[in-house]
Design a protein around this nucleic acid. Sequence first.
RNA 1: UGGGGUGUCGUCAAGUGGUAAGACACAGGAUUUUGGUUCCUGCAUUCGGAGGUUCGAAUCCUCCCACCCCAGCCA
Length: 577
Amino acid sequence: MKTANDTTSAIPSDFIRNIIAEDLKTNKTRGRVVTRFPPEPNGYLHIGHAKSICLNFGIAAENGGICNLRFDDTNPIKEEVEYVESIKEDVRWLGFDWGDRLFYASDYFEQLYQYAVQLVKSGKAYVCDLSADEIRRYRGTLTEPGKDSPYRSRSVEENLDLFERMRSGEFEDGSRVLRAKIDMASGNLNMRDPVIYRILLAEHHRTGDKWCIYPMYDFAHCLSDSIERITHSICTLEFEDHRPLYDWFLDELNADCHPRQVEFARLNLSYTVTSKRKLAHLVEQGHVTGWDDPRMPTLSGLRRRGYTPESIRKFAERIGVAKKDSIVDIALLEHCIREDLNERATRVMGVLRPLRVVIDNYPEDRMEELEAINNPEDPGMGTRKVPFSRVLYIERDDFREEPPKKFFRLAPGREVRLRYAYFITCLEVVKDQQTGEVVELHCTYDPETRGGWSPDGRKVKATLHWVSAAHSLKAEVRMYDHLFTKTNPSDEKDGADFNAYLNQNSLETLNSCCVEPSLAGAAPASRYQFERLGYFCVDSVDSSDEALVFNRTVTLRDTWAKIEKAQMRRTIADGSS
RNA sequence: UGGGGUGUCGUCAAGUGGUAAGACACAGGAUUUUGGUUCCUGCAUUCGGAGGUUCGAAUCCUCCCACCCCAGCCA
C-alpha cells in the first residue's frame, strides 16, 4: 500500500498511536498493524471522513501495515453504487491507495450466515417473532430492565429451522428476526438481546436478490474485521458502548482474530455540519446544488471549491485525535489551504467589481506588454506578459472619493501604483447624474515609473491590481461564504434546528468580472491566486473556454478589512454613547 | 434515577508524579511592487470545583459539578 507523503510533517502523536505502539511493544499482534476504513455507501464522504481516512491509512503506513477499504453494505435499502463509486474516487483523490485491499461486507454474507448458525447451535441466538414495536417495549428503558421475549427459550432445532426458513424467503418482510441471547437486564441497552439478522425483501446493489435476510452492523462489523484480520478497529465515540457487543460476538464464536476496537471523537467544524443525514437534507431540499456544491464540506465539494488533498491532509494532522467532543474552528481549514496555495498557485490579476479608469495622457492606440511575476514564492514559476492600455479596470473597492483614515488606495488627487505597470494619479471622478454613482475615473500616469518603480525614489502607499479593458476576458466568479450563520448549527438549545441557521448569503455570483488574458483556456479545476483578493479555481462543471467560471476557494488574509471593521465598530460605539 | 464517556488558553491539542509543548485565532512591531507572504513579540502562576496524599500533583485518592452518547428490525 502506498500512502500520500507529506515530507514536512513528523508523525503525530495521539492516544490511538500510543495504544498501537504499546500493543506492538507487548507483541499483541505479532508485529502486524492492519486498519480499515469502513464507509457505508449511503452518501458522499465529508471532511469528517477525511479525518478517519488519514488516521487509518496514516497509522498503517507509519507502521509498515495495511489499510483496507471496506464498504459496510449491510442495509440494501439505503445503499447505492453511485455512492461506492464516489467514495472510491474521493479516497483516491485524498491521496490514499488501498491496492488490492478493496472489500465489501456483502462479500462475507455467506460466512456471516454460518457464524449466525453457529451461534444458534450454541444456544446463543434465537429467532424472535415479536414485532418491531413489541421488541421495543420488551427492551425496557434507560433506567428499567427489559423483559425476556416469549420466544427466547425456543429449542436449538426450532431456531435452526426457523432461521433457515428466514433465509429461504418463507416469511414476510420484517416478520421475524434473529437475536443474540445475552441479558435483557443489562445496563447497556446494546446487550439486551440485540437483533442480528432481519428480513429485508430488498435488492442489494451487489448481491442482487440472493439474500432476503441481512446482518445488522454489530454482528457484521466485528466479524468482517476478524475475517480481514484487522488488528485495530478504529471508530467514533458513539460506538463506545457497542464495544462489549463487538467483543461478545468474537468471544462466543471463538474467533481466532479478535481486533481491538478504539474510539475517537468525530470531527465537528464551525459554521457547517458534518453529518451525512444533514448534508443529504441540504441536497434534497435544494439548499445547495448537489453533494459537490462548493459550499459543502464534502470531499467532492471541497475539491470543486479548489481545496487540495495536501491541505486537507495537513488539516487532519493539525486537528489531532482525541476523545473530547469538540468543534474545530473552520479558520484552521482555511489557513491550511492558504498555506498550500500560497506556495503553489500562479498569481494572476482579475477585477471582480470593475471601475473604469481612463489614463488621459496615455496614447489611445498604444498597447504595451509588461512583465509580471507568476509566483514570488517560487521564482522557478517564471514570468508572463500582461497588456496595458489607455482604458483599464480597477476594483471598485480600491477607490474612495472620501478616503477614511488609513485608506491607502486611490482617491482624488492621490497617486498609487498599478502592479507591474505605472504610478497613476486620480484627477477626475465621473458620476452618474441620476444616481451619483461613480462610473469612471480619469487619471494620468507617470511614464518614468514603468514596471512600478519611480526613479526619484518616491513612494506610494498602495499597489492596485488592474486589467486592460480591451484585452481582458469576461468571467463569472462565485463567492462563497460559510453555509451556516451559527458556530454550531446542530445545537438545538434555542429551540430551532440547523435549517434555521442556513446562511442566505453563502453564495454571491459576480457576472461582470474581468480577468487578464493569460487566463484564456484555463484548465478546469486549475487554481490561481487573484492578487490581493484570494485563491480561485476554474469550476470543473460550469466553466468553458467561451464562458469562464471561477470559484473563490478562500480569500487572502485582509488586514484592511479588519481595520475598517474596527473603525466601523468604533463609530457605532461613539454614536450610541 | 441505568450504562458508557469527556472536562488543560477564544478554538483544537501535547502532557502518563519533577514544576503547563505546539497550531489556529487574536494583539503589537519589522520587511514588502499583493494591506498577501515572511520575520519578531505578546497571549494558561495554572489544568471543571473542593478536599486529601506527597518534598513536589494537570498527572495519585475522595467527593462534587458540567457536558456528550445509548431505549433503529440504521451505521
